[in-house]
Amino acid sequence: MSVLIFIDHADSHIKKGSFEALTYGADVAKQSGIGAEGLLLGTVNDDLASLGKYGISKVQQVSDEGLNNFDAEVYAKAIEEAVKATGATIIIFSQNQTGKAVAPRVAAGLKAGLASGAITLPDTSNGFVVKKPVFSGKAFANVNISSAIKVISLSPNSYKVNTGEGTATVNQLNISIAAPSVKITAVHKVSGEVPLTEADIVVSGGRGLKGPENWGMIEDLAHTLHAATACSRPVSDSDWRPHHEHVGQTGIQIAPNLYIAIGISGAIQHLAGVNRSKTIVVINKDPEAPFFKAADYGIVGDAFEIVPRLTEEIKKLNNA
């Protein structure tokens, strides 16, 4: 019996969401009085032993170069083998793009119940219950997993990373890896951009900005805050901004520490994608904009005047 935490990586580095998953998994293990181990498929340039600081005792690694090329089927089979080899009973993923592809496969392959997008530690007082957002953030469900093996995918930005003293031992797992059936032929990354689902701060623009040519000030503000940029649905539908920036019920759902909405009225569908943000700031010239009801801080006024001033004030703070 142990907790096995899947460690996700890209470009030779472990992703931020995996540090959250490691902390979470170690806490799940502590709660149940069992051990916690990480599982890394492929190779990275990061120091694996230092992952002990998140509370895990061991990193299981399958150092097959073929695994640096992501194929959900190959990954799932390798994880299922690792679960059998380690005797793990609880498997943790970060609910990012990789987690969404692999966690359901692993759950089905092991006949394990899956709670996807969890935001709390399991409540084991009566079963094994985790809370997760449903109805695109308009509500939460408490989901009980009744199977012997349990799979949890952790919603990004919902569990605080904790570090302490500790070093993990690294163990090479001998698992034979099948040839992938999905061949990656090209990767298009927007360089220098903070990935939206991993961002602590998100600056988002809506129709109130009038056109794509006015996004310079949004990008300036985002850059000053080391934030990701996002937009509302009408903006991406009009091709002012790329589709992958669309947050809302039918776009990406995010839960950053700070969400700054500029020129977005706050339709219920948009709120559904962002209402788990810890702090919401709304800048809108319409005092009746519904978004103000969901906001923590607001300014009623002209975004074209306020946003550049905001950027200047934040620069002052950064330099202070």
């Binding site: 759950a107 006949k111 394990a112 119940g113 899956l114 709670a115 079963g127 219950v129 809370k131 449903v134 953030g137 308009k138 509500a139 939460f140 469900a141 408490n142 989901v143 009980n144 997993i145 009744s146 199977s147 209402n275 788990r276 009801k293 969901a294 906001a295 923590d296």
Partner: peptide
Amino acid sequence: LTNIVSFELPAPK
């Protein structure tokens, strides 16, 4: 393998 025990609405702002 799973069941929903209960639902909750978010705390009002």
